[in-house]
Amino acid sequence: MMTQWILLAEQTSEGGLFDLDATLPLMAIQFLLLATILNILFYKPLGKAIDDRASYVQGQIAQAKKQKEEALALAQRYEQELKEVRKQSQGIISTAQSEAQKIVSDQIQQAQQEVIAERQKASEEIEAERVEALSALEQEVTALSRQILEKVIGLEFAQ
């Protein structure tokens, strides 16, 4: 039956499977119009959106890379500075320590000297007082011995 139909289709005066007519150029024009309209409505705006997004992402990646590099450089610089500062503080601490050491030893020395001086003074005073005491004692001894002499041999002889 199929063959009959197809034969029938071929036999009809107009029509048939391979019936080329004005449909062809009109369809071509219609297609070109569709391509133009779709270009305006679809390909251009969406393509622009895709390209913009791609360049945006690229820009973001580049920016992020730059920022990362900057951050790394900054961190390195800070570390350098930190190292330097640490070194400086170490120096300050050591000088302070040595100064303090010096002060301590100075003061100890001073104190020792003072002590020595005081001791000397005290011993000198003691000596003086002893001399004084001895002289006083001698006078007293003299006086006493004079009195004893007076008592023993009389006042006249004593003078």
């Binding site: 139909w5 197809i6 289709a9 071929e10 009809t12 107009e14 029509g15 048939g16 499977l17 019936d19 007519d21 004005a22 449909t23 009109l26 369809m27 219609q30 569709l34 309209i37 779709l38 409505l41 679809f42």
Partner: peptide
């Protein structure tokens, strides 16, 4: 098979059924 819904434009004949469905397709795309 091979039967067409003819439209006549001037002295030219076109297949109407093709254009009807193609307009639907174009509409979908638009």
């Amino acid at each position: 098979v091979g039967e067409h819904f003819y439209w006549e434009i001037g002295k030219y004949k076109i297949h109407g059924q093709v254009f009807l469905v193609s307009w639907f397709v174009i509409g979908v795309l638009l």
